[in-house]
Design a protein around this nucleic acid. Structure first.
Lengths: 347, 347
DNA sequence: ATTCGTCATGTAACCGTTTACAAAATTATC
DNA sequence: GATAATTTTGTAAACGGTTACATGACGAAT
């Protein structure tokens, strides 16, 4: 009844050699004579032998699996990053174990625990907000990991990403230079999200530098979904028109899209009545109407680099602990100079 | 130097019992006396013992891991589905091993091979177009699997999804009933994609039923990205205006969005000049302007059910082999009756 | 011809659990 | 109170590879 799937001993018997030779052809082909290697390869193919990774992992203490824990995959940016990471790892002969935390550090730690138990050679985490338990776990198990989406050259553990604070500063600075003085922000929920927090700081710094500040009524935090963003924009624009900002920096492109939709719905002209600045430069951002001015983050590169770092360090090669990627301003149609105040004719 | 992470024997020694009892408290707590269980749990916590899943998998032949292979995660629908699946599995104590095939059956088979070797208890695949090698692999290893996104009650293996052919028929039928006779289609690339193919068939059937047909110059296939879809729409609308269809069915919402964008760019009024029908009902589809008439597919449900099927069958409980989900027509703003021909005034 | 080094291959212990089976302890039955 | 039935715990053999070490074969050096 049970065909008892073929094991390494079956192959060995079939060829008439020891299991060691089979194992060697599999893991270190050069160490076996070409003639024998050929016979073994043939036998493997003939018998349809598939090495059991559990046994392999058990005795070799390596799994060729990389774990990644992201807040959610239902977000164009993460999806893209994971896609890039997955192809890279697959190319390198690694497998990807994926989990989501829903932006909750406790869940993240739990998932990591799971993965560690399951056996991962390295771990990719989003951001740098992790529980102490998680840090201890990684340290005690000596699991290499890398924080993605942040750049913290001062920290003793790896990171790859853009400098969110600086990028947000650039974004806001640009609006200031256009002449805006009434600038608001619709940010992502900042609790447990260091990227969101950094972006807010960047905006604040740019404003402060010009003697401006982020008025509480012009600062609002919303969850990551289109509906929420739209709702947020609605409340931002709920005061009498004189109280509106002339420009808003958004925590990311999805939020910006929500703002755009709501502005349009209210009959506002973007950018003339309201300049909108996004963040991340998602695929569709340049297709919007008006197309979105935003900060371009090279997501693919970030994730691929993260994978690269782990693969390199696992194979004992040197790898830079920190990698900063360029976050660049992409000016499109959703921003412009503010409409001159006081009813003078716009130029 | 090496702290030699604690194993089951350390725990056993610490408590003064055999390893079997430790193993039992872990896997089958009821089979151990409450008093002992308590002491063991305490010891586990105290020593920070984490069971080694590789050893566990090796000796128990189960991994509590489910694999999923999808074409790409960079696609709102898959992303959403994976998100739903991940939370469900996580709740059930399973881990998700994810891979992408890039719509290539060979790659899919290779990835599956990888996963099987790595040890998965069950596998989720997209669609029903798999290589023979893959089918043989699954059969010989007796790995339960389920095809997602299709509904094939006649097949001997599990499937959960909507009936694409019927849904496309509904979609097209609706346009016909509105009075359209000049109907085109911008489909997804149909090679290696049975869902895309089924949708085309459904449209063809609806047309045929009313004595219409899908003119070759009104049928076009495009890849899944916004740019491509837009390019596709462009070529559809490149002929002189008299040669245009008055309505197009799109293979999915992304394509529909591309068509919308291109139509707008050309100054066409949707729906008056051109009705656009989408497919899938992505999150943002109802936010578009005009909002998109489309076929709603309950993605979350599909993927959760798929996971449920596997978890149930793995735990020996009965599970329906096939599950059909409702695909429903959602009428929004992007479709209307065709503008009357011959310059008569539109009502 | 003998000795030595090199390279290819074999031997067998070990990786950290699970689990069939055996043994011991407890409870139920008469 | 003795015996049977039942529950709890222990013993030790897998599970399927890897790899340190041993062995043997062969050619080079003396």
């Amino acid at each position: 009844m049970k065909p008892k799937s073929v094991g390494i001993r079956d192959v060995a018997k079939h060829v008439g050699v020891s299991t060691a030779s089979i194992s060697r052809t599999l893991n270190n082909p050069e160490s076996v004579s070409p003639e024998l290697r050929m016979r073994i390869d043939a036998a493997i193919a003939e018998l349809g032998y598939i090495p059991d990774a559990a046994a392999r992992a058990l005795s070799s203490r390596r799994t060729r699996t990389i774990g990644a824990i992201i807040p959610t995959v239902d977000n164009a940016m993460f999806a893209r990053g994971i896609e890039a990471l997955q192809s890279y790892l697959s190319l390198q002969g690694y497998l990807l174990l994926l989990s989501t935390s829903g932006y909750d550090p406790e869940t993240e730690a739990r998932q990591a625990q799971n993965m560690v138990s399951r056996g991962i050679d390295g771990l990719i985490l989003r951001g740098d907000m992790h529980t102490d338990a998680l840090r201890r776990l990684l340290a005690s198990q000596r699991i290499p990991f890398v924080n993605v989406g942040v750049y913290h050259p001062d920290k003793p553990y790896a990171s790859v990403g853009g400098n969110n604070e600086a990028a947000a500063y650039r974004a806001c600075r640009y609006l200031v230079e256009l002449g805006h003085t009434r600038i608001g922000m619709v940010a992502a929920i900042s609790s447990n999200n260091d990227r969101a927090t950094a972006r807010v700081s960047g905006v604040r710094r740019a404003l402060a530098e010009s003697g401006l500040s982020l008025k509480p009524e012009w600062y609002i935090e919303v969850p990551y979904h289109l509906d929420d963003a739209r709702q947020g924009a609605r409340s931002l624009l709920s005061s009498p028109r004189e109280g509106w900002p002339t420009a808003v920096v958004c925590g990311n492109d999805v939020i910006a899209y929500g703002v755009l939709l709501e502005a349009e719905r209210r009959g506002l002209n973007v950018p003339n009545d309201l300049s909108v600045m996004g963040f991340d430069d998602l695929e569709w951002s340049r297709h919007l109407r008006p197309s979105l001015t935003t900060m371009h983050v090279p997501t693919d590169e970030v994730w691929t680099r993260a994978g690269e770092y782990l693969v390199r360090s696992l194979s004992g090669r040197a790898a830079a602990l920190h990698h900063e990627v360029d976050v660049s301003l992409v000016v499109r149609e959703s921003t412009s100079r503010p409409r001159p105040e006081g009813g003078r004719k716009a130029r």
